[in-house]
Write a protein that binds this DNA or RNA. Structure first.
Lengths: 223, 223
DNA sequence: CGCTAGATTGAAACGAGTCAATTACGGTGG
DNA sequence: CCACCGTAATTGACTCGTTTCAATCTAGCG
């Protein structure tokens, strides 16, 4: 790994996007890139993970265990996203799990270094604020959706969001149906039944385990 | 309102706590303090609220309307908390409602000024990051609790949290039971029934509309 | 002191969860 | 490259908790 390519990688990370050349170079020297195999747990509840992790490729699933022991998927992070910020912002140990969904290249930055950049470079802090604010907003939407809408509606909204993001009527679930179900706050059986009902009504067609064709977007939006 | 008292007020706000005397003075000149009567809507969904609002006294309820039109209480903010950050971090208009629960003194700071402090004073950005990170964490806990635990358990957890915060077995609901129910992701009827069941089992005693005595904390924690 | 929104209680309906039994993938190793 | 294995997905029947609807009752603010 050469300095140059590392700097380039760092410059692609949203929270470091506004740094000047000198700053980029410095961040690059502190960063430890690593390739993690599919299914590796980056950290878990109770761990004292001292790193801010930045995803350069791949996907990471963030989940949490409820008191009664059920897994709740919180979000899926992709290229450019970071994780692990809670541990050094709030102190203490992690209260959630982070697992790679496929082979992923991830850069780790020690919390001491990160604190340093945060106090010296306002743009980094500002970008992080933007991201956390956005995450908070979407988690709040998620919360009110889970309590206020019934399962069928949550499934429909989710599919429409996927379609919008991919700008296509053919969508691919980013995670297993079991995990999507958890993310949407329902059991896998319920998710499966809702999809089956939509397919029965010719609103969607399931292709393979992850693919879904949206045949009738208008009807889907009325669910 | 004299400069001095305003500066003092500002120095009490967590996110400005680390500013030096000069900076405090400057923030104080930009801040507009105002007393809001009980029940006033500070802003609502669709509003372009250009201010970061900081609570000096009183309580503010933050809620959201689900697509199907039900109110979902997101959180209650008290002295030292701020609100309105989403509008200038993410841009666009608010997607939630903020209403005072009682007469409250609130300082407003224009988003342009706030951006200015954020880019010049890393400690302010850092404090905000800490707060947002904490909020995100508790919203995530809330989310997994709503999907993973049954209503009785959520009620018990909530009462124990209140007791812990007040360091006492006599707690007072910060909001109406209807709003607590919404916050806990259930209907008012369900909340009422769960409380009645706890009272029936001599675990708590209800006194008035807002007061609850916890008679048997141990049994409560086993719910 | 009266009005109105909030709170309580009952009965009934329904949606989602649970349990259980197959079936279908997908990743691994031969 | 294919067969195998384990996990994920599907489907059915049943249970149960929460919601819904409705009828009071109550407390607090004006």
């Amino acid at each position: 790994m050469h300095e140059h390519s590392l700097e380039h990688l760092v410059s692609l990370v949203p929270i470091f996007a506004k740094l000047d050349a000198d700053e980029l170079r410095e961040v690059a020297t502190r960063v430890r890139p690593r390739v993690h195999p599919r299914g590796e747990q980056l950290y878990g509840a109770g761990d004292d993970n001292p790193y801010l992790m930045i995803i350069h490729s791949g996907w990471v699933k963030v989940s949490r265990l409820t008191e009664s022991g059920h897994e709740q998927v919180i979000r899926v992070l992709g290229v450019g996203d970071f994780l692990g910020e809670a541990t050094f912002m709030g102190g203490g140990t992690a209260d959630h799990y982070a697992v790679t969904l496929e082979e992923s290249e991830i850069c780790s930055l020690h919390r001491d270094d990160m604190r340093d950049y945060l106090s010296r470079s306002p743009s980094v802090a500002y970008k992080m604020l933007e991201t956390l604010s956005k995450r908070l907003g979407s988690t709040e939407v998620q919360l009110s959706s889970v309590t206020g809408e019934e399962a069928g509606h949550r499934v429909a909204s989710y599919l429409m969001r996927l379609a919008q993001e991919s700008k296509s009527n053919r969508v691919t679930l980013p995670i297993s149906k079991k995990d999507v179900a958890s993310y949407l706050g329902m059991k896998p059986e319920t998710f499966s039944r809702r999809l089956a009902r939509l397919e029965e009504a010719d609103v969607v067609r399931l292709s393979g385990n992850r693919g879904i064709d949206i045949l009738n977007p208008h009807e889907l939006s009325r669910s």
